[in-house]
Design a protein around this nucleic acid. Structure first.
Length: 156
DNA sequence: GCCAACGTTGGC
DNA sequence: GCCAACGTTGGC
């Protein structure tokens, strides 16, 4: 058992927001639709139950971190890739050798206040976050130091 | 809606 | 293996 790790997961706010997660059954959802190899590797190999998650709204108004979640199920095959009717369908991914993976996450709580991207950019100690360096990765590692800074900034 | 940055595809 | 073309992401 490795120590707890931290992640930032991006979701388009209009598509699936942190509020949607709060309203979901058991406040839990599967994090499907990731179709990028680097992000896939994190989902498949690195995310573990108990890991902390910053829930980030991309394409939001404004974009920023809305809430906290935790991983409740480690990586397993993303079944939406097998369904030809699903928008995330990928014929290259087969059930016996899946290309894509997902995890389950559960809401922990909304941040006391929303942290916009602009505010994160202006905060010392977060300069190395991929999010602030033109990274389009939808699953990004967050260091323990960055996690603490973000929570403190939000008033926790 | 615009457009810059990034990732993937595919011809050679 | 290179690299141009293309599609997508995501901030504004």
């Amino acid at each position: 058992m490795t120590s707890k790790q931290y992640w930032l997961l991006k979701s388009e706010a209009e598509c699936f927001s942190f509020n949607d997660l709060l309203k979901a059954p058991k406040q839990t959802t599967f994090w499907d639709g990731v179709r990028n190899y680097q992000a896939r590797n994190f989902l498949r190999d690195r995310l573990q139950p108990g890991d902390g998650v910053l829930f980030y709204h991309s394409n939001g108004d404004p974009a920023g971190v809305a809430g906290l979640a935790e991983v409740v199920r480690a990586g397993y095959p993303d079944h939406t890739a097998f369904d030809s009717k699903n928008p995330h369908f990928d014929p290259k991914s087969k059930p016996d050798s899946p290309t894509w993976y997902m995890v389950d996450i559960k809401a922990v709580k909304a941040l006391p206040r929303f942290l916009s991207l602009a505010e994160l950019k202006a905060t010392k100690g977060l300069e190395k976050m991929p999010l602030l360096n033109n990274s389009r990765l939808s699953v990004q590692p967050v260091s323990e130091g960055e996690w603490k800074i973000v929570l403190k900034l939000a008033g926790l």
